[in-house]
Design a protein around this nucleic acid. Sequence first.
DNA 1: TCCATTTACATGACATATCATATTATGGAG
DNA 2: CTCCATAATATGATATGTCATGTAAATGGA
Lengths: 152, 152
Amino acid sequence: MTLPKRFRDTILAAQRSGHRVFADMLRPLGLTPAWAEVLTTLQENGPLSIRELSHFLICEADHPSRLIKRMEDKGFITRTPDPNDRRAVKLVLTESGEAAADKVAGIETGFNEWIEQRLNADNVSTTIQTLERLMKGTPEARSLENRYPDSH
Amino acid sequence: MTLPKRFRDTILAAQRSGHRVFADMLRPLGLTPAWAEVLTTLQENGPLSIRELSHFLICEADHPSRLIKRMEDKGFITRTPDPNDRRAVKLVLTESGEAAADKVAGIETGFNEWIEQRLNADNVSTTIQTLERLMKGTPEARSLENRYPDSH
DNA sequence: TCCATTTACATGACATATCATATTATGGAG
DNA sequence: CTCCATAATATGATATGTCATGTAAATGGA
């Protein structure tokens, strides 16, 4: 048994496990983890174009235009044309989107507690460091740097 | 900034980063990471029913029947009815499936080296321990136990 | 100014994932 | 033996993720 293979299986399993738990918490709100990520990102980082938004997202970092379209259809987001660039749009949360983002923040607190019950801060920090070293130079690392600029 | 939130963003980013790198390595073979997981699992664990297979998979652990169907259509897998249970099937690799599984093993070796270049064994073990503690009792942990029985 | 290149976004196509439900077979209670 | 709960698999529906391609607008050099 090679350790690296088990390592990546473990990361995959952890991601899926956490995703499932988080999705279960969000389901009563009619939201998914990807939607939650967009809602909180827009709430914290103001009006963004689709391209700018994608630089913050870990999920769907390629081009989230269809994700945005669905959220627009549900009334969480409005798009206004960018006056300086007719190709681009500015995405802003609607009132309903802001309310959903607030609820997501509450759910995230619960999820963070779920993690804190199982792991101490030292384990968490060490794992973050290890994984960041693994990702150095990848596009995913850049999304993390955008989300957590103070730590990079 | 809460550490647990950054922790789960980092796990998501690491999983996606690794998935992308692995997918790029597999693409010339016309395979995806999920297909690779099925191929190597069947090669190592002999004929399995779809249900049994799902207990080994981290990907698509719910019910991989459509994944199997696509791999069958490509000629990698044959299904034979289980003589003891007419509902169930036994999945076996075709000759072409065996050859693909061998190639996947080679790719995995390369991927493992990619990881070993970036992390030492101690980092890897510590991270595995932390993530396994996080997942204790979840279905994902059970899939890992099936894949790596000696360590549990 | 003109045109090639780049950028922002959309969309087609396909492969995961996951929930809910349907279908058929098994096995046990009565 | 009959009926019912359960199990194995399949499928519809929808969301996510990714690659390739298309369209229109901006940009910068000749």
